[in-house]
Design a binder for these strands. Structure first.
Lengths: 332, 332
DNA sequence: CTGAAAGCGCTAACAG
DNA sequence: CTGTTAGCGCTTTCAG
């Protein structure tokens, strides 16, 4: 039988003080008679009073809450980002409302606006849809927006992105420097911002090296390891197989490695994205790694700075990547 | 210059109707003159009105929000659970406020109570602390609580748990059935509920088979792959090395496999917890797998059932495990 | 079918 | 240092 929650009025009555005194005690206003403070706390304890944050927020206008709208919460990448955002929020006394657009533009819109209706103090968004202009009104009315991982369209807001081009270019340059000219490219759908950027970086590196990218070695179906594995397997079985492969995400890397092992081939691998157990990779591969949590931290800090009133021009921040060696199980 | 958000009053004034009519339109009350509906919508559009969910909730008492308090948001396991919870919530028109206790009892308490103050409609908690009695008052006042992964203490509430004992027992039985008697055990801290349960399952299996568990082969420091690797490496280097190993979590499994490969030994492996790229494991191992997302789904559904008023006695639900084969890269 | 008035639980003004 | 009075933006009586 859910009994009613006690309110400040109940506490005030029980402690024999006014409503406002209770409010002051709860908000740690120093100028309250210690004796009253004592009595109020006693009543709070006795009645099991818990301040209704809703009512407080309604007055204040803000909610000590930020919204995080990712593209796919089941993806470990966004999850790590979320953890980092959550940690920053905690240090500010904020909580995080998390949602996932599942890469659907309409759901993104609905959830983002819903978050605004809940009066989050700010919003971190991984844009899925082609156009975030629906947020313009909210941004104008004082809800700061920070885009994460992909820039927003049709709206001026801060963005925190990976150095996709630079990372991909570095990775490919390493392969080209090793003398490879037939380099397979395993990408996910190029409609995804990060994929397009990484491909642009790849093309830059090829152009700089004066090597021609064989478009037949470019596959864009690596959303998971299996298609990547199949794509590389068939390239390896061709008359002029690649001697190296650049994988634009970690699923592609895993699929590629499986194909290489199955074929017993000797192929050099560089892949974008580190992953939790990359130490298990059976031979050494180059990994374009970066600080995933840092991405979330920077985004959250940018957001809190805006929420604190910073009105500097919006900026794009690039999180750097670095090429590392991973795997080589036998060396462990 | 954040201009003020328009309120229903502004909309009413603009549309030349009463406040209440606007409210009705927004809440899709069918008995409103279509002409007025039209006018109201026009004004909403024109002013960029967005209903303040806070104010609505204050009246209603609830917030169309549930709280999810995990033990460690940076752990992929909780992350997958969170994604599943979030999906269920969406179908109910709810959003999820996510927090992480970082395995600290005091932080757990603070965050859980904070969530209650925000008037979440219900709470899913992965208990870190030894005692959740601080939630009793909230539960009594109508905030349903569901414990996830670990049961709560000192409070009667639903819990959704893995079949830790059964899964561990199955895994060990497979090793014993294959004739192994010297089985290494790589565990994390036994103070963790799931670890203690899994060890209990292991002991059951040993007892059933009439085999004695050599306590010197039991290690409890496998919080990450490295200590597991070291632990197994030194066991393998001993005079009477184990011929099989049971790993109580996926980090232990990865560390064990690294040690085995490095030692060039022939050791059979069974590990608890599947992981994203377990296909990369260099040889076949047994994995005690389960439906991680399902755990979150069941917890969320239990919670929504309670929120809908179900007052059946609280229950513990066990999510089943199954022993599968993973890895064996060469066979891919 | 529509509107005026009251109030959700709290905090910000302003007195006392 | 304490209390009274409004009122945050909305929904809910209850009349019209």
């Amino acid at each position: 039988m859910p009994r009613d929650r006690p309110t400040m009025i109940d506490v005030a009555a029980d402690a024999g003080v006014s409503l406002k005194t209770v409010s002051r005690v709860i908000n740690n206003v120093p100028t309250v008679d210690p004796a009253l403070v004592e009595r109020v706390y006693a009543s709070i304890e006795k009645l099991g009073f818990r301040r209704n944050a809703l009512a407080a927020s309604l007055r204040a206008g803000s909610t000590d809450t930020i919204g995080l709208l990712t593209a796919d919460l089941s993806n470990a990448f966004y999850t790590q980002v979320a953890a980092a955002v959550s940690q920053v929020a905690i240090t500010h006394g904020y909580q995080v409302i998390m949602a996932s657009s599942e890469e659907e533009a309409e759901l993104e819109r609905r959830l983002a606006l819903d978050l605004c209706q809940r009066r989050v103090g700010g919003l971190i968004v991984v844009p899925s849809g082609p156009d975030q202009s629906y947020l313009a009104a909210e941004a104008h009315m004082g809800t700061p927006i920070v885009f994460l991982d992909r820039p927003g369209s049709a709206i001026d807001a801060d963005a925190v992105l990976l150095d996709n081009r630079g990372g991909a270019a570095d990775g490919v340059r390493a392969l080209l420097a090793a003398g490879h000219t037939r380099v397979a490219m395993l990408f996910d759908d190029l409609a995804i911002f990060t994929m397009a950027e990484r491909l642009a970086g790849v093309r830059e590196a090829f152009a700089d090296a004066g090597v021609t990218l064989d478009e037949r070695l470019l596959d864009t179906g690596s959303h998971s390891p299996d298609p990547a594995r199949h794509a590389l397997a068939s390239m390896l079985a061709s008359a002029t197989p690649p001697t190296a492969v650049f994988c634009a995400n970690n699923r592609a890397t895993v699929g590629a490695v499986q194909a290489i092992v199955a074929a017993g081939a000797e192929v050099e691998v560089v892949g974008f994205d580190d992953f939790e157990f990359s130490a298990l990779l059976p031979f050494e591969v180059g990994i374009v790694a970066y600080d995933t949590a840092g991405l979330g931290t920077v985004a959250a800090e940018t957001l809190f700075t805006r929420m604190a009133g910073d009105t500097a021009p919006t900026a794009q921040r690039l999180v750097p990547t670095r090429l590392e060696r991973r795997g080589g199980l036998r060396v462990a």
